[in-house]
């Protein structure tokens, strides 16, 4: 009960735009798109993996990427090397989405994984992305499935629905369409330049910006069975 009271008071104590998960004002990781996002155990040793890291930064900022060694803490991991020449930027509202690609090879030890009754196991990778003095350590996992237990390839695809018009309103509904042909379990995440999102995990929810002007609206969806990742973004002009 004491812990519950602390939970209550923690939520009561929360305040400020800078503390809201969905509001981006500095370097912020959005997700990783892995190709492939899962591999069967049989095919895993030596399988090449390409990982596209997506982050959001304020407009005109630039990023760098470097290896993040997790091998000491994570016995089942593989090293990835970022390629700075693959860094690209897409301006969205007052932010920009930056992408960088890193690649690696799954270790031979993947063939010896003891699944212990579960059907999949994550082999981990790490990368650090920097924007000036800000940095994000990103540690994700490529899924290795027991032979014969691999799911169907995910066709997950998210897009922000139209219309998103805040030219006459200071708050309004936002919605995303999600194509999910394999009915995979998924998780949605909304990101914005400012304000509050009522439920950042819902496909349809409400956004209350707290400043006017051009702003970014970003939604991501990740498949919880396959590790798939999809993203959609839009520039919204708030009155």
């Amino acid at each position: 009960m004491k812990a519950l009271f602390l939970v209550v008071l923690t939520f009561l104590g929360c305040s400020g735009e800078s503390d809201r998960v969905e509001a981006i004002s500095k370097l912020r990781a959005l997700g990783v798109s892995a190709t492939p996002s899962f591999v069967s155990q049989e095919a895993s040793p030596g399988a090449a993996v390409s990982l596209e890291f997506l982050v959001a930064v304020p407009k005109d900022h630039v990023i760098t990427a470097e290896e993040y060694d997790i091998s000491k803490e994570e016995p089942f991991s593989f090293k990835i090397t970022p390629d700075p020449s693959t860094i690209t930027y897409q301006d969205v509202g007052d932010l920009r989405i930056a992408k960088v690609t890193a690649s690696g090879v799954l270790p031979p030890t993947a063939a010896a994984i003891d699944f212990r009754g579960v059907s999949s196991f994550g082999i981990k990778y790490g990368l650090t992305i920097k924007d000036g003095s800000e940095s994000e350590n990103i540690v994700g996992a490529v899924l290795i499935f027991k032979d014969g237990a691999s799911p169907a390839p995910s066709g997950l695809n998210v897009s922000i629905s139209d219309p998103i018009d805040f030219s006459n309103n200071t708050e309004g509904n936002i919605a995303a369409n999600l194509q999910n042909p394999t009915s995979e379990k998924f998780k949605v995440s909304w990101f914005v330049s400012s304000g509050e999102i009522k439920n950042r995990r819902a496909l349809i929810t409400k956004w209350t910006p707290n400043r006017s002007g051009e702003q970014a609206l970003i939604v991501t969806a990740r498949g919880l069975d396959t590790g798939a990742f999809t993203i959609s973004s839009k520039t919204v002009t708030v009155k």
Binding site: L4, V7, V8, F11, K198, N199, R201, A202, I204, T205
Partner: peptide
């Protein structure tokens, strides 16, 4: 206790 900013699938979240 019901606290906003949650993880439910509904809009209220």
């Amino acid at each position: 206790l019901a606290v906003p900013g949650g993880t439910g699938s509904g809009e209220e979240g």
